[in-house]
């Protein structure tokens, strides 16, 4: 439970948002060329990091826009919020 600074609406309660999981997983460019292993990697395998993680969020009960967020999953502290397509402000 925390506050999220939506890049479009400003600071709102986390309950207004829905989490979209790990960010920067690229959709396969040529799905027909993919092996089963590559599909499994794309669909299911996750880093699930304890610590600083890059993730996608959606302001579901607000502007309904997607954006990215850098959050420490060990204490729910948010380090940065940035729009889709933008470069992450932290490495």
């Amino acid at each position: 439970m925390f506050l999220i600074n939506c890049p479009y609406c400003g600071e709102r309660d986390q309950s207004e948002f829905s989490a979209g999981g790990e960010a920067h997983i690229l959709r396969p460019k040529q799905p027909t060329e993919l092996s089963d292993d590559q599909w499994a990697e794309y669909l299911f395998m996750r880093k699930n990091i304890k610590g600083v993680q890059f993730e996608r969020w959606n302001h579901a009960h607000g502007c309904r826009k997607w954006f990215n967020m850098i959050r420490d999953t060990s204490n729910d502290k948010i380090h940065a919020v940035y729009k889709m397509g933008e470069k992450p402000p932290l490495k």
Binding site: S15, S18, A19, N48, I49, K50, T73, S74, D76
Partner: peptide
């Protein structure tokens, strides 16, 4: 609905 290791919950 989000990944967290905080042992708290919303």
């Amino acid at each position: 609905a989000y990944v967290s290791y905080t042992q708290r919950g919303s």
